[in-house]
Design a protein around this nucleic acid. Structure first.
Lengths: 154, 154
DNA sequence: ATCAAAGTGAAAGAATATTGCATGCCTGTA
DNA sequence: TACAGGCATGCAATATTCTTTCACTTTGAT
């Protein structure tokens, strides 16, 4: 089925990535196809999983999540069980935006959003170092968000 | 004007964050207000900047961006000019998803999406170390994306 | 040349969004 | 307590937009 997308499909993807509320008629106009065709194309992009979902981006500071923190984590042991337990725990923590297993000086990298530094300190003491198998964490407070979650270029 | 959002507003925000294509009628039903009220509330959330935008999330591997890399960067000098030049350059590179000025062992943290490791290596040699003022970079290849860009909890 | 897949415009019907308006609810004031 | 102003709300009418169907055309591969 993945008959390799054509130029029109890519344009639709880019438009929807830029503004997911763009109407079908509008998209059709911009990519130069009829509304009917555009509608079917877009539908297919959803059905075939090219578009995972459409999400509103909430302004973090407007909902008291203005502080961003990156955390490097090292685990006690490098066993599959240890990794599994840590990952499961991470998935359950709502303030963790990213959790990635990496190669290098750390085992995991976390991206966390909280209200402020004080909030993070509580959370760090209460929840992060208490995560299963954590030996050490290294915290990098974000002082300036130069680019955050930029749209994917392709 | 920010008269502090009420429970209904928060519900609307959460619904739209989960699925930005949810129709007004549907939202109204789920938050128990009339379509008219819901429409006006939603409109206000956009106008007042609570919702920055609505974006389709494209499946990275479907558009040849299946590889994720975190990069720590240290600059030569810590002057405002140096920082400014580096940031401007980062904003212009489309493969950089995140670029954050941090406190700690690095000056900046980057989150980058490319096709594969080979692709990253080219890019690292050609573009990253060539960024203005870069003294050193440390690369962390992501081996497993446990949580990526999770919705904001609030 | 021929077939099949995909596209196109037009049109109708369904579903949504949007707006006007009268009502009800607080709040502050007399 | 009574009352006026400012708002948010629901209902209902209106305006838009979406979605599908149909008959016909284009495109591309064989």
């Amino acid at each position: 089925m993945p008959v390799e997308l054509d130029k029109t499909d890519y344009k639709i993807l880019r438009l929807l990535q830029q503004d997911g509320r763009t109407g079908n008629a509008e998209i059709a106009k911009r990519v130069n196809v009829s509304a009917a065709t555009c509608h079917r194309r877009t539908q297919r992009l959803f059905e075939d999983g090219y578009i995972q979902n459409v999400r509103a981006q909430i302004a973090p500071d407007k909902v008291d999540r203005g502080a961003l923190v990156m955390v490097g984590v090292v685990l006690d042991r490098s066993t599959p069980e240890s990794f599994g337990a840590f990952e499961a725990a991470c998935r359950a923590l709502p303030f963790i935006l990213d959790c990635h297993l990496v190669a290098g000086d750390f085992d995991y990298f976390l991206k966390i959003r909280v209200r402020d530094m004080a909030d993070f300190n509580h959370l760090h003491g209460d929840q992060l170092i208490a995560l299963p198998g954590v030996r050490q964490t290294r915290t990098f407070f974000v002082m300036k968000e130069v680019v955050d979650n930029a749209p994917l270029a392709f």
